[in-house]
């Protein structure tokens, strides 16, 4: 278990849980729901914001939101 903001560039994970109050509805509407596959595409300079790919949707979110999303890492093969 880790936080989305703690992943490395290029790393993939499964979104696990987040507290409803912390996450804007818009992000959920973009497909950020428990069980979705997420990949860190790139960090902006100073590691914020973060460019992520959720099931093919490319988004940029700020680190403060990414740090509220718990993810399941999996060992990259």
């Amino acid at each position: 278990m880790s936080l989305l903001s703690k992943l490395q560039q290029g790393e993939k994970a499964i979104i696990d849980t987040f507290a409803v109050e912390d996450i804007p509805l818009k992000l959920i509407e973009m497909g950020c729901i428990p069980g979705s596959l997420v990949e860190i595409v790139q960090f902006a300079p100073y590691n914020d914001p973060i460019h992520i790919d959720i099931n093919g949707t490319h988004l940029a979110i700020r680190a403060n939101i990414a740090s509220k999303i718990k993810v399941k890492r999996f060992i990259n093969d």
């Binding site: 818009k26 949707t57 940029a60």
Partner: peptide, 11 residues
């Protein structure tokens, strides 16, 4: 106000 920031990065 909460600083929500969600930007789509289109192709």
């Amino acid at each position: 106000s909460k600083s929500y920031f969600v930007v789509e990065m289109p192709n």
